[in-house]
């Protein structure tokens, strides 16, 4: 857990504060001592494989499920589960639940708007705006039961936003969405985060999307947080290997043996696109290696450090290291 030592008003600036969260279902331990600190305005990504405990975490953070044991559970400055009623009006949640299939898309949203305290008219206005935002205006009057999976998902997302929440939980928000819709959603999330200072708590295993949109992530495996921080920090910590990518020009040839002989280089591997990845002994060796490669009598398109990705970090932490790039070649 990275924590800022000079944050005086830490209680107010945190959207979510969790310490020692444990939950078991009979003999199955779903969460085993989870700690989280999420500042307001953060786009936070909770990453983890199926069954890691993401949905359970979202449920407990909303007071919809009880913790088996917890030292501290504060959301938007309120203690849960005691003050859950004070938190709910400020929060919107999208999880893998169903819509009212016999009601129109618009009526589904109006119902939830009214549950968040809006008058029928105000709820309708908000619902129409959200339907427009998610490109569902044409289908506003159709029964939700007639929608495709992607359209339902959009409607569930719209429903989570209908109460103008300060904090939004999205549980696998891009499941069933096509790439363009996923991308649009990421843009919406970033806009709302920057413009309205909305906090997002996103549970997902779409690593590329999370890397793109999240300012902070945590990797949850078997009910425990394995890493936490910005995507770059997490990647660095989880993947200690330092790589330098050498991309030769189309007709040029670089001999891997030559590269392996350079000082500071531990290993090399040729990639499918013809580039070569050099593993450096440490990050302090990188400038030296880059200089040496650039000095070689070969035409290059580029040479530079290849920072580890969130996907690599995730796969390492989850224990699927064999699939990590460069591991086998």
């Amino acid at each position: 857990m990275s924590s800022d030592p000079v944050r005086a008003d830490i209680g107010d600036s945190l959207a979510i504060e969790v310490k020692g969260l444990t939950r078991s279902f009979g003999a199955v331990s779903a969460l085993d001592g989870v700690d989280l600190e999420i500042a307001r305005g953060t786009v936070f990504g909770l990453l983890g494989p199926n069954g890691a405990g993401k949905t359970t975490t979202v449920r407990i953070l909303n007071g919809v499920l009880e913790a088996t044991a917890v030292e501290c559970l504060r959301v938007l400055g309120h203690d849960l589960p005691r003050d859950a009623a004070a938190v709910r009006p400020l929060v919107g949640v999208q999880t893998d639940t169903s819509l009212y299939d016999r009601m129109s898309a618009l009526d589904n949203l109006v119902l939830f708007g009214r549950l968040y305290g809006a008058t029928r008219g105000a709820a309708r206005g908000k619902a129409e705006a959200l339907l427009a935002m998610f490109g569902l205006t044409d289908r506003a009057g159709d029964r939700a039961g007639t929608f495709s999976k992607g359209m339902r998902q959009k409607l569930l997302l719209a429903r989570a936003l209908v109460g103008d929440p300060e904090l939004v939980y999205l549980d696998e928000p891009t499941a069933g969405l096509d790439p363009e819709a996923s991308h649009e959603l990421m843009v919406h999330i970033r806009t709302m985060s920057e413009r309205d200072h909305t906090t997002f708590f996103i549970a997902s295993h779409r690593l590329d999307e999370m890397e793109e949109v999240c300012s902070q992530v945590a990797v949850l495996v078997d009910g425990r947080i394995r890493e936490c921080g910005s995507p770059a920090e997490v990647a660095r910590r989880a993947v200690p290997r330092v790589l330098v990518r050498v991309a030769p020009a189309p007709d040029a040839m670089v001999r891997p043996e030559v590269l392996r002989g350079l000082p500071g280089v531990v290993d090399t591997s040729v990639q499918q696109d013809g580039s070569v990845l050099l593993e450096a002994a440490g990050s302090s060796d990188v400038p030296r290696i880059v200089k040496a490669v650039a000095a070689l009598p070969v035409d290059l398109l580029g040479v530079g450090e290849e920072p580890p990705t969130l996907a690599e970090a995730y796969l390492t932490l989850v224990g699927a290291t064999d699939m990590v790039r460069g591991g086998g070649s």
Binding site: R88, P89, G92, T95, S98
Partner: peptide
């Protein structure tokens, strides 16, 4: 059964 209840439980509905 239709999995709509959980959605209601997240709202301010007491």
């Amino acid at each position: 059964e239709r999995r709509t209840l959980e959605g209601l439980l997240y709202t301010p509905l007491s």
